[in-house]
Amino acid sequence: MHLDAAIAWLKHAQDVTGNGGVAQTWLVRSRRWAPSYPETTGYIIPTLYRYAAIAGDEDSRVRARRMADWEIDIQLPDGGVLAGALGDSDQPTVFNTGQVIFGWVRAFEEEGDERYRTAAVRASAWLCDIMDEDGCWRKFGSPMTGKQINTYNTRSAWSLARTHQITGETRFLDAAVRNCEWALTQARANGWLDTNCLQDNKQPFTHTIAYAMRGLLEIGVYAGREDFIAAARRIGDAMVAALPADGRLPGRFDEQWRPTVKWSCLTGDCQLGINWGRLFQITGEARYRDATTQILGFVKRTQLLSGEERATVGGIKGSHPLNGGYHPWQYPNWATKFYADALMMDSANRGGPGYVIRKEPAL
C-alpha cells in the first residue's frame, strides 16, 4: 500500500512534465509543479527498475527507459549534467552528474543498450578530469548552494565505482577511492564530517549526513577499504543512538551529534533507513534492521494515502511538519524516491518481497 502509493506519486510527477523527466517538487503554497530535475530523475531510474522487478510492473520499466533517454538528450557536450532544475542554470555540477550516472549504469545493466554505458563513461570521465589531485572536487560545485567543497560528494564518487563495474576502467575506481580518502581528512574522531551541508556546515541536514555515509560505505565495500566502512559505521551508529522511540529523528545535528532542530527531514530519515539496512546486510546486526523499521514507521505516518489534492497523495514532504527547515511547504521528488527504496530495503531484510540484490544495492 505505502510503496505502491509512492511509486504512483513518482509516475504522476513524471507525467506532469511532458518531457520524460520528473518534476523537481510540488510547491504547496503556489499549487504548482517545478520543472524536471535532471539530478534526481537520474537516481529515480534504479528505483523504478527495482519496483518493476518486484511488482512485475512493465510500466515502471518503460518509464525508467524514458528517463534515461531524456538524460542523454540533455547531457552537456563535456559529459556533465546541469545544475538545478531545467532553466535554473546552463552549467554542469559535480553532484548532479554523479547522481545521473546511477541511472545510466542501471539502464545499461537492464537494457544492454550501449548508449547508456557511453553516457555514463562520458560523465565519469568529466568527473575524473575536474577532480583535484587529493581527491577533492573544488570546481563545479552547485550554484544553488554556494558551497564548492562538499564531503557528501562521496555519493558522487560512488557513481564512479558503479561505472567501473560496467567498464573495468581502473581510473574510475581510483578516483572514487581518492575522494573517500579526502573525505576522511574532514572527519572528527566521533565520525562527524566537516563541510557536509547544503547551507550550514556547523549543523548539517540528516540528508547530507546520509549521502556522505552511503558513499563511504558502498565504496568501502566495493574497494575492500575497511577504513571507509568503519567511518560510515561511526556515522550510522551515532544516528541510531539519536533515534527516538517514535522514530521522529531531528533534521540537523552538530559536531557532537546533538540535534539542533525539532523538525524532521523526511528525506534524511528515509536515507538513513536505507543505510542502516545496508549495515544489517553487511554486519548481520539486527539493531540496524530494527532502526530501519522504526524510522519508517514514523515516515509512514506522514504519508497521505488519500485526499483531494492528487499532487500530495502518496508523496513525502521535505520536512515534518510541513513548514520545517528542509524544503518547507514542498514535496521534493527525492523524498519519495528514497522512501520507496527504504520500504523495499526493509521488506527484503525481513524476508518479504523487496529489492533484488544485483550488482548494486538499493540506491
Rank of each mutant, 00 (worst) to 15 (best):
G191H: 07
Q294F: 02
I54A: 12
Y116Q: 08
T195A: 12
T93Q: 07
L266Y: 04
I130M: 07
L48I: 12
A157F: 00
L160R: 03
Q256W: 09
E255R: 15
R214H: 04
L86P: 01
R188A: 14
Y152K: 09
R258N: 10
R162Q: 15
R32W: 08
Q165G: 11
E110M: 04
L76S: 03
Y355H: 07
G79D: 02
E360C: 09
G146P: 00
V356P: 07
D78I: 12
E181Q: 13
L343P: 08
A238W: 04
Q91P: 01
Y288R: 08
E255K: 15
F338P: 13
E111D: 10
R310S: 05
D69S: 12
D73T: 13
I45L: 06
T97R: 00
T118M: 05
R289H: 02
D59F: 08
M131D: 01
L173S: 01
S159K: 06
W9D: 07
A348F: 01
S347G: 14
T283K: 03
Q148D: 14
Y51V: 09
R171N: 02
I274M: 12
L86F: 01
G277Q: 03
A157T: 00
Y222S: 13
R155F: 08
A242L: 13
S156T: 15
A157Q: 02
N349L: 13
N179A: 11
N96S: 12
R162G: 00
P77A: 11
C136V: 14
R115N: 10
I45M: 07
I72Q: 02
I7K: 12
